[in-house]
Design a protein around this nucleic acid. Structure first.
Lengths: 127, 127
DNA sequence: AGGCTGTTTTGATGTTTCTCTATGCAAGCT
DNA sequence: AGCTTGCATAGAGAAACATCAAAACAGCCT
């Protein structure tokens, strides 16, 4: 059930600072990262990810996700699949139900790639 | 020239922890964030952003961006427009040339939204 | 076995996105 | 003024995406 993830970009060879803001990305890295950001580029998937990530206990049943949206159940399933293919979440069937949880490594990678060095990286972004 | 930016999501009312990973996103926030992530969901735009952000001096001329790609000049211009509409960059014409620079606030916001609390948020994501 | 519930897959359809060529506009130069 | 260069916009075609209904699949429970 947890096949088709994404090979996660071999960063950090240089010792520090995952790049994007510090050095030009090469084509291959850009393609890799774009897949993950694209997965975040949809309101439904963002909300799904948010619901999964913020769930106490770390995992959530599909049956708890679906009713939160005005979308058909197959559509939700499709979005979950895309998040999974992006390496952001994983799932497991337990009896009748399927449970999803966050894969923190991928999120951390994306956060790191967007983080300018020497910042607390939480709030203070008042734009 | 710097019209049509994006109103940046009024986060952080609660004092800390910009959400996404800590509490379910509501529809409006998700739509807002998705626009920005969608802008990052393309390899060309990621590379453009990376070239702009990492440029010493903080800004770069379009004439230095275009030749780095196997794409037509209007296509690059189009991607730059999308990045600008997402509030990630801004630009100004100076004489013959147009210069682009990063808007750090938006990047910081996205990084913050993806950052799990209590993490250095740079490397260590070896997935 | 047969039926029921929860989830994924398939196939179809309308919309969005990426890319190009052609055109337009702005600024400098002769 | 007219030409040239740098960049943006307009319009069009192909590919990718979001969504749904229908069908398939996986575990229960009689």
């Amino acid at each position: 059930m947890s096949k088709q993830e994404l090979v996660v970009l071999g960063q950090d060879e240089s010792g520090c600072c995952p790049t994007l803001l510090t050095a030009p990305l090469d084509q291959e890295q850009a393609v890799e990262l774009a897949k993950m950001f694209k997965a975040l580029g949809d309101p439904v998937r963002l909300r799904l990810l948010s619901m999964i990530a913020s769930r106490e206990g770390g995992e959530i049943c599909v049956c708890d996700l679906t009713p939160a949206f005005d979308l058909s159940q197959p559509t939700i399933s499709h979005h979950l699949k895309l998040l999974r293919q992006a390496g952001l979440i994983d799932c497991e069937r337990r009896g009748t139900w399927v449970y999803y949880w966050l894969l923190p490594g991928t999120i951390d990678k994306l956060a790191g790639v967007l983080t300018r060095s020497g910042r607390p990286a939480t709030s203070e972004a008042s734009a």
